[in-house]
Design a protein around this nucleic acid. Sequence first.
DNA 1: GCCAACGTTGGC
DNA 2: GCCAACGTTGGC
Length: 149
Amino acid sequence: MAYWLMKSEPDELSITDLARLKNTRWDGVRNYQARNFIRSMAEGDEFFFYHSSCPEPGIAGIARITAAGYPDPTALDPDSHYFDAKASTEKNPWTAVDVSHVETFKKVLGLGYLKQQTALAELPLVQKGSRLSVMPVTAEQWVAVLALR
DNA sequence: GCCAACGTTGGC
DNA sequence: GCCAACGTTGGC
């Protein structure tokens, strides 16, 4: 089983929303590097749910992949914020997965706090200039974050 | 293929 | 709202 970290703006989807929704489609990823990681995900993989672009950026909890990658329908929906005019049913370059809630942390592990952890120095999240919204997490990094809860 | 201009992300 | 950093676009 692999581990990941995925960013979401809590205004769009927060860990609390996910807990209420049970099973949810994770769509709208429009960056090739992030998409490639999405495509390597398997059912049962777990990921840290990161709140971005909000008053308290940080890891808010854990969620699980419940369905591996499939064509992202929002790319074909003209009413969607994520609509891609160049995508078609035959050729849709974008990928979505289904996810469900696992755990909400008692408190958000803030970005500044995460940056202080030497065990997380290699995590793209804490590296300068990194804007990657989906990234792999090693088993060591996973355990290190769990210990901060 | 280069690279300037522009758009986006995301912390602060 | 600002701005640094990165990605994408498009002229040449």
